[in-house]
Design a protein around this nucleic acid. Structure first.
Length: 442
RNA sequence: GCCGAUUUAGCUUAGCUGGUGGAGCGAGGGACUGUUAAUCCCAAGGUCGUGGGUUCGAGCCCCACAAUCGGCGCCA
């Protein structure tokens, strides 16, 4: 007999049929002659009814004694029954336990632990992440995550971008040097990459339109709901592109992710308590653009203490975005607030041609991007101006010596986007094994 | 790096002015033929984060340390 998925049984595909289910015990209840085994697999869960009279004493005892998360194979008849959660149940004819659970070491994640975490996380659940993954909340998050990754690849591949991989061991920083992870490297020091960008720029003259989805590493001791030390970074780079064109792609890919989640995971979003109308707004509305100067004026008008030239930290972003109901781009930051690779605005050299995309609901910055400093002369001047050493960037400077062209790109924090669209309380909730400054286990 | 908080059974927690630490869930034993976090009965489970101090007496007061959580800076 071919085994079937529980999700298909619950959707009515096997009503009245005799089927085999393979899964794990979610919960059991019942009495000495009748047991209800709630079995789950990757597609859902179903109540399985085990009657002593039907299966015999031996099988009844075996199935009754199986603890939560025991794996088993059950054969039986699919019945439509109002009393069962999901509307279907399996009248068990026979079954066996594949992998049991020792009563001395029962599955540690109990209902009380889940309730106490209130949909979020506790230290206990983080310590037992390897087991927490199989609860419905985490499974749901991982399915949403998969769809988000698929949407990113889909967006870029539909537009004939080439997926391109950069090294993870690097010699220099992209962002501030203080956030680099040092790695011993055969007697030298290497670093874990903070961004694919510099290596993407090297391939830009070859591929013109390229993207990646890869981990980036930042040794930030940040203790916030928006930060991980290892996060998934979707980055893209386009030859001949302007800041505005790059923003169109940023808006395009974020809206594509939101639309894909609505299409593929609307039940999952709802089960997490996410309002689908909100996600729909993110999928369908255009994302307004606002210059840095305008943002500063707005904030000053609200009585926020900020001077021109200051970067917008999270406390300021939060005030600025509190009335936004869709993501907004912030463009044209002062040169003094941004690193050397941002291209100076030819119309006003106090600014750079860059953008940040700020998500609403307090989820912060989800994209940072813009045009790159592309002439050799300018990049050398900007590197020296900021007191950055030239040596680690020699390959980067070199790319500009042979037919440099205007170009740009962005980096998108995939985990942040997922946390935002799923309405998660913390970025940790949307990645299977979160890494932050205090946790590298399990 | 800075600020704030927490730490009591496997998990989640209560614990009064300092006077013999209670419960729910889980796990164990038992009852029950339609349960929905099933229910009912029984029994077990604690060096109260670690180390010091005050006191006749500390889960509670004081000091140090540790782990964890939340927020900020920084960023995606």
């Amino acid at each position: 007999m071919k085994s079937v998925f529980i999700g298909d049984v619950q959707s009515g595909a096997h009503d009245g049929a005799e089927v085999e289910l393979k899964g794990w015990v979610k919960r059991t209840r019942g009495n000495n002659n009748l047991r209800f085994v709630v079995l789950r697999d990757s597609t859902g869960s179903i109540q399985c009814v085990v009657k002593r009279d039907t299966v015999g004493d031996e099988v009844f005892a075996l199935l009754s004694e199986a603890l939560i998360e025991s794996s088993m194979i059950l054969k039986g008849t699919v019945k439509v029954d109002e009393r069962a959660d999901g509307g279907h149940e399996l009248a068990v004819l026979s079954g066996n336990v594949v992998g049991g659970v020792d009563p001395e070491r029962p599955f540690p994640i109990t209902e009380s632990a889940m309730v106490a975490a209130d949909g979020g996380e506790t230290e206990f659940l983080l310590d037992n992440r390897h087991l927490y993954l199989r609860t419905s909340r985490m499974t749901t998050m991982l399915q949403i995550r998969s769809s988000a990754f698929g949407a990113i690849h889909g967006y870029f591949r539909d537009l004939d971008f080439v997926e391109y991989q950069a090294p993870n061991f690097v010699a220099g920083a992209v962002e501030g040097g203080s956030t680099l992870f040092e790695v011993p490297y055969f007697g030298r020091t290497a670093y874990l990459t903070q961004s694919w960008q510099l290596y993407a720029e090297a391939a830009m003259p070859a591929l013109e339109r390229l993207y990646t989805v890869a981990p980036s590493f930042r040794a930030e001791k940040s203790r916030t709901r928006r930060h991980l030390t290892e996060f998934w970074h979707a980055e893209m780079e386009v030859a001949w592109a302007s800041n505005d064109e790059i923003m169109q792609h940023g808006e395009g890919v974020v809206r594509r992710i939101a639309a894909t989640l609505l299409e593929e995971r609307s039940d999952a979003l709802e089960s997490l308590g996410r309002d689908l109308n909100t996600v729909e707004r993110y999928a369908e509305s255009p994302y307004p653009r606002m210059r840095y100067d305008e943002a500063v004026e707005t904030l000053q008008g609200m009585g926020v203490d900020i001077e021109w030239g200051q970067d917008l930290d999270y406390s300021k972003e939060k005030v600025l975005t509190q009335d936004f109901d869709v993501p907004h781009f912030l463009t044209h930051y002062p040169k003094v607030a941004k690193p050397f690779y941002h291209r100076v605005d030819p119309d006003d050299d106090a600014y750079v041609l860059c953008h940040d995309l700020l998500a609403p609901e307090g989820y912060g910055e989800i994209i940072g991007g813009g045009e790159r400093t592309w002439s050799e002369e300018e990049i050398l001047a900007r590197i020296d101006e900021e007191g950055v050493p030239r040596e680690p960037y020699q390959f980067y400077i070199d790319t500009r010596a042979y037919g440099g062209v205007p170009h740009g790109g962005f980096g998108l924090g995939v985990d942040r986007v997922i946390a935002w669209l799923a309405g998660a309380d913390h970025i940790r909730e949307v990645i299977p094994f979160p890494r932050d400054s205090r946790r590298v286990t399990p």
